[in-house]
Design a protein around this nucleic acid. Structure first.
Ligand code: ATP
Length: 782
DNA sequence: GCTGGATATGTTTTT
DNA sequence: CATATCCAGC
């Protein structure tokens, strides 16, 4: 590694391959700055270089820089790039985090000022629902009229606007709001009792802290002299408050974003944060990046033509000097299965032309659409990865395991406690639990404390008392181990992994799911295998864990925090030989040489739920725009004539967005069996002829042979790419490497979709069943 | 106290 | 179709 030698000469290199506006955005280090960056105009490049420039050229200490990214994946990438530009050490000292992870950390750091213990729990939506159900029962509100989800949504909106329960109550006018107000108050109380926060609280509590606590604010202002925020168009009010409080003193805040890529309005993001930036900072330097370096002119023209239909939008020029490519294709298929096969046919062609699977991606509006794709991919043994990182941590068995961990570090977490108290069954059933809860309530105790005193509870059977005592002492034993030697970690090889191992074993959870798996061998998926993956993942966490000084308990807290804050896209790896599948939302900020967007249909891409709101329709259009602008060279949009949803095969209508694409540079095909000539193409005449891109057009050159007509499909099934059968590109008999278990042979492959599993005989540890989606199995050849 | 079958009921996107 | 919750029977 020679970056140390070139400290002085890398200066220009930081700027060499930047355009003038990009360079200005990097080198204007002082004061507020707004970078309005169009899609693919290099904003990620700019923000990364800017971090490096601040440190290397402006002499700013790495630890004085705060960079906010949208996902953990983006965090990792930024850190890697900064490390390449500077040194590992310097990159490691910069605070690069998502808003949520920054806030989680700050809450722990300033715990005593917020009244929250440092071991607080973070509730995900499932936990929130459980808690809300309890609240509704207490208030005697029927969940039939007001579902927990709806109420939580309203509360979430209020929290995003930093409205406390009391403030909300004060403003509640109509019947529904008054209900929400009552529920909100109780819900907050319940959270507090559980020493827990929800996702919104992470932001809200920090926003309130920096707003109201002068000392904390000043502390942070001094600590972070330069603030940079990526994807600023999707920040909400709480995030706005936090960012501007931290940057308040020095005003060194650089925000980067694209209003056309604002796609999170539905969860409280406020596009006005970026649109009004100049009002907040009249002296802001504003830099527009309009030149796109990512896509072919054809792709850009199509995307630009679409986004121009948004009325609520400042005028923006989007242009490129990239060479011409092929036309964007819009293809209609008979149904989702033919659609999936045709997309894979296309991918196979591209691969034949020299591309790798890793350069191809499929986007869809809703997760449910991934299933057919997965089945088709497995059928052809094409390796794929799916961006659904959070799904793993929501699985029953995984939540159970984490529940034990949560109770271990936070006794007050009743949601977790109730989850695991009788899982596996240990004689603490509903009646016992109800009595313990009643006792706790009557005496102002936490449920845990009541459980500890279960021996004094006259109403309980001796059997139940026994079970309770055993349960409590199990935790006591764990705690002793966790706190061994005064809470400090003695042996370096002891990590979260070992804690989870211990808990799974002692609690009987592992055995419980093992037994269950055996019983349902043919129907259910291997839950014990998932627990195994959890252990492996924890081991990975331990390996990457940076804080050498931390106690074991500290580690567990950090681990729980990290699993609470994973984002769907986090697990996606680049440059791997597999096709990637993800939702359009997860696609933000990424780029791929070949992009297929499926299900571009009325009710799906403008989603049915956005139908009667103009602003939501515009957000749907932006979502479509984001998807299209991820493509570098090849872009395919598909829709079907029939689609099966909820078991019902229904006629579909092409997305109105397709009609909004400029006619030029687009090739449409109808590969359905329909004799009606393909609905939407009737509307061609209505399309915008007026659209005239300034960079000229090329005659569209259709890519290769179209996956020719309906008839060809039958044969396509047999044209499996790669060898053998089975899922995800793992033929039976091939050799694989597992990060923990080492080398092994694939004995069998079963299941489909996210349930795809492989039985592998490992050289050292014997036969294991692994979930392909999560086990990072690497195929070893030769 | 536990299990499994019956029944209703689907929020699309996610930190 | 698929999951989540409820209730009856063991
Ligand atoms: N000055 C430049 N010269 C050549 N290529 C560039 C330049 N700037 C950016 N690029 C390339 O353009 C592509 C898009 O860059 P980047 O991902 O930073 O864009 P972005 O603005 O973040 O896009 P989006 O907002 O759509 O996510 C990347 O492949 C990047 O390498």
């Amino acid at each position: 590694m020679d970056h140390n030698l070139s400290e002085s000469t890398t200066g220009p290199a930081l700027l060499d391959d930047l355009t003038d506006p990009q360079r200005r955005a990097v080198t204007t280090t002082e004061g507020p700055m707004l970078v309005l960056a169009a899609a693919g105009s290099g904003k990620t490049r700019v923000i990364t270089r800017r971090v490096a420039y601040l440190i290397q050229q402006a002499g700013v200490a790495p630890w004085s820089v705060l960079a906010i990214t949208f996902t953990n994946k983006a965090t990792g990438e930024m850190r890697d790039r900064v490390a390449q530009l500077l040194t590992e050490r310097q990159a490691g000292a910069v605070t690069i985090r998502t808003f949520h992870s920054l806030c989680a950390r700050l809450l722990r750091e300033y715990a005593e000022r917020t009244g929250l213990p440092s071991g607080y729990s973070i509730y995900d939506t499932a936990d929130q629902k459980r808690l809300m159900q309890g609240v509704l029962k207490e208030l005697d509100i029927s969940a039939a009229n007001f579902t927990p989800a709806t109420l939580l949504g309203s509360i979430s909106n209020a929290k995003n606007e930093l409205q406390t329960a009391e403030e909300y109550a004060a403003r509640a006018t109509d019947f529904y709001q008054k209900i929400v107000a009552r529920v909100y108050v109780r819900y907050e109380r319940a959270l507090k009792q559980n020493q827990a926060v929800d996702f919104d609280d992470l932001l809200l509590l920090v926003a309130r802290l920096v707003r109201e606590d002068e000392a904390v604010r000043q502390d942070l202002q001094q600590r972070f002299e330069y603030v940079l925020i990526d994807e600023y168009q999707d920040t909400n009010h709480a995030q706005f408050v936090i960012a501007h409080a931290i940057a308040g003193g020095h005003g060194n805040i650089c925000v980067v974003g694209d209003p056309d890529q604002a796609i999170y309005g539905w969860r409280g993001a406020n596009i006005n944060n970026i649109l009004d930036f100049e009002e907040h900072y009249p002296n802001a330097t504003v830099i527009a990046l309009g030149q796109n370096y990512r896509s072919t002119p054809e792709i850009l023209a199509a995307a630009d033509g679409l986004i121009r239909h948004n009325a609520q939008r400042p005028h923006k020029d989007l242009w490129t000097e990239n060479g011409g490519g092929e036309a964007v294709r819009v293809v209609k298929h008979e149904d989702e299965e033919r659609e999936a096969r045709a997309v894979l046919d296309w991918f196979a062609e591209l691969r034949g032309a020299g591309m790798t699977w890793g350069q191809m991606v499929i986007f869809y509006r809703v997760n449910a659409l991934s299933r057919v794709l997965e089945e088709a991919l497995m059928e052809r043994a094409i390796p794929y990865q799916i961006a659904r990182g959070t799904a793993f941590y929501q699985r029953q068995e995984v939540k159970d395991a984490l529940g034990y961990l949560r109770v271990l570090v936070n006794e007050a977490d009743d949601v977790a406690l109730l989850r695991i108290i009788n899982t596996p069954t240990r004689g603490l059933g509903n009646t016992t639990i109800a009595q313990i809860q009643a006792h706790a309530q009557a005496n102002g105790l936490t449920m845990w404390d009541a459980l500890k005193r279960a021996g004094d509870l006259v109403g309980l059977t001796a059997r139940a008392r026994n079970a309770a005592a055993k349960f409590v002492s199990m935790f006591d034993g764990w705690k002793q181990k966790l706190e061994g030697a005064g809470g400090t970690l003695i042996a370096a090889e002891q990590g979260v992994r070992d804690v989870i191992d211990m808990v799974l074993r002692d609690s009987g959870l592992d055995a419980h799911y093992r037994k269950l798996d055996e019983k349902n061998e043919h129907t259910e998926e291997g839950k014990a295998a998932n627990l195994g993956e959890l252990v492996t993942a924890a081991q990975r966490f331990d390996l990457e864990y940076g804080e050498a000084e931390a106690t074991l308990e500290q580690r567990v807290l950090d681990y729980l925090e990290s699993v609470s804050l994973v984002s769907d896209v986090d697990g996606v790896v680049d440059s791997e030989g597999s096709v990637t599948l993800m939702t359009l939302h997860a696609a933000k900020g990424l780029e791929y040489p070949a992009v297929a967007m499926i299900g571009v249909e009325e009710g799906l891409l403008p989603h049915a739920r956005s139908r009667d709101s103009a602003s939501e329709m515009e957000e749907e259009r932006r979502l479509c725009f984001v998807g299209m602008t991820r493509a570098q060279q090849h872009l395919l949009l598909t829709h079907t004539r029939y689609r099966t949803a909820r078991g019902q095969r229904e006629r579909t209508i092409a997305s109105p967005f397709l009609r909004e694409l400029p006619a030029d540079g687009i090739v449409e095909e109808d590969q359905s069996d329909g004799i009606d000539g393909g609905g939407w193409s009737d509307g061609i005449g209505e399309r915008d002829e007026a659209f005239a891109p300034s960079w000229g057009r090329r005659r569209p050159t259709a890519v290769g042979p179209a996956p020719g007509g309906g008839g060809a499909e039958g044969g396509a099934g047999g044209s499996g790419v790669g060898s053998g059968t089975g899922g995800g590109g793992l033929p039976v008999g091939c050799m694989v490497r597992h990060p923990q278990f080492g080398l092994g042979d694939v004995i069998s492959v079963s299941g489909t979709g996210s349930n795809a599993r492989a039985k592998v005989r490992f050289m050292n540890v014997g036969v294991k069943t692994l979930v392909l989606e999560y086990a990072r199995l690497e195929r070893v050849t030769g």
